[in-house]
Amino acid sequence: MKKNILSAVFAIVIATAATAGVNPIDGEKKTVKTTESTVTWKGYKFAGSHEGKIALQSGELLFDGDKLTGGEFVVDMASITVGDLAAGQGKEKLEGHLKADDFFGTENYATSKLVFTSVKATGKNSYDVTGDLTIKGITKAVSFDISVYGSKATATLKVDRTNYDIHYGSTNFTDTLKDKAIYDEFDLVVDLQF
């Protein structure tokens, strides 16, 4: 009888040790449908604004039941387009400039990445997220709100481009720009389907 009890205890200890590195709350990864999701950018300047799209290369959200717990996204920076200008109105010139080293330097930095580091529920479908955003090989923390409804999620981020060595047209680095100044912050509106 003692032998059977010792064997059972030994089996439990081994089973516990074998699963010690596994976190049962890792949750379920839901892959984002990149072709059905959109990332819209909007940049502001003294004399107006421009906006367009950037393609999502990959993405996933992590859930524990129906609660959002994490996420990771990669954006194809070479796909950046301008949506408020038609061909012949400077659309191609602006798209080329956004891809150049003055801005996102897509030849050397083809992708940007966002990794959630903290997710806090603020309501039934709303979350306060902190994440590491990497642009041009530079990683900085960003905070934003995200809402999740069924198989859809929406987030809006405000990004200070100067944190990522994008100084072109910034009044923080020259005061001779006057009406050609470009504001440091730009917006990203992300609509996800998963």
Rank of each mutant, 00 (worst) to 15 (best):
Y149C: 06
A100T: 08
L133W: 05
F46Y: 13
A121M: 07
H97M: 10
V9A: 15
Y127H: 06
K53Y: 03
K42W: 00
T19C: 11
I14G: 03
E51Y: 12
D64I: 04
I138K: 12
K180V: 06
E72L: 08
A47C: 01
D84W: 12
V142Y: 01
D102E: 13
L177N: 09
T156A: 12
G52Q: 09
S170K: 10
L61Q: 06
S126V: 01
V119H: 00
A20D: 01
A11H: 03
L61R: 03
D165T: 05
I12L: 15
D187K: 14
V74Q: 11
K30I: 11
G137A: 08
L188F: 09
E60C: 06
I5R: 10
A141V: 11
E36P: 00
S170A: 13
S118T: 14
K29D: 14
E185L: 07
A100G: 15
G137H: 07
T139C: 10
L94E: 04
K53V: 04
I135Q: 00
K53C: 01
K3W: 10
F104H: 08
K140T: 11
T106A: 05
A17I: 14
H97N: 09
I166H: 02
Y127N: 02
T34P: 02
D191E: 14
T81H: 05
T174A: 15
D66W: 02
F73Y: 11
L62R: 14
L192H: 02
N163C: 10
A86L: 10
A78M: 09
Y127S: 03
G123V: 07
V22P: 03
G169K: 06
A20L: 15
K33Q: 14
N172Q: 14
T106G: 06
D191H: 09
G90D: 07
S112C: 06
D66A: 13
D128T: 07
F173C: 10
Y44N: 13
D191Q: 13
G21E: 00
D165E: 12
L188W: 03
V75S: 06
K30C: 11
K91Q: 13
T40G: 03
G123D: 08
T106S: 04
Y109A: 03
V159E: 01
T19W: 10
K2S: 12
K113V: 11
D165R: 10
E28P: 03
H50K: 10
I166W: 03
H97I: 09
K113S: 13
T19R: 01
K178N: 15
L6W: 07
V142T: 11
E92K: 10
K91S: 08
M1I: 13
A110P: 08
A141M: 02
D191L: 07
A141T: 14
F116Y: 14
R161T: 07
A121G: 11
N4L: 14
T156F: 00
V9P: 01
K140I: 06
G90P: 10
D76H: 03
V13Y: 00
T35E: 15
Y168Q: 12
I5N: 05
I25C: 02
F73H: 07
F194P: 02
E185P: 04
S79E: 05
Y168A: 14
L188S: 03
T122M: 06
